[in-house]
Amino acid sequence: MSHHEIESSINAVKRGNSDAFENIVEMYQRPLYKYIRYIVYNQWDTDDILQDVFIKIYTNIHQYRSNSNFEGWLYKIAYNHTMSVLRKKAKEPFVLVERLPDVAYIDEYKIEMSSEMTTTLSQLNPDERAILFLRVHEELPYKDISKIMKNSESLLRKKYERAKKKFVKIYKEVLQDENRNIQ
């Protein structure tokens, strides 16, 4: 879908044509799914969060200024909502029980990703995964990430460097452990 078509859909939704929102969902559900799932690291939470995010986008779409950075705006809403859900979950008394993945989930995940990577990523926190996603995968400049994550550029640089160092350190340790087990 072209930029023009996206803006047309947005404007149509703003005018009250809720059906036009379907185009927006179709267009952005995959990248947003990937983004949220990478942050929360959990299939079930991703499902819930993503649907809520789309509802938030719909209810707030009149706040979006035409022809500004729509993707950045989406990422910002997704980030805010995701972190909010995670914070709420962290306060829940039985969160550990709830978060225990079942076997099917583990299998599904293992098919997609190496065990070394799964272990490494699971030891990063959601904020660290978010910044790796935006910086490495989306290749966003710190200025844009700053708007999404509401941190100063200098702080984000530090966060990124810390996340990178942490990732490399854990990844190397995991590889070494794997090698030891093989031997």
């Binding site: 969902v25 559900q29 995959r30 799914y33 990478y38 997609e112 996603f133 490495v136 995968h137 990732f167």
Partner: peptide
């Protein structure tokens, strides 16, 4: 990092 992100991609339809 990119490989790990691509790995979480999935055909989804929430429409």
């Amino acid at each position: 990092i990119n490989e790990s992100i691509e790995a979480v991609e999935k055909e989804v339809d929430y429409t």
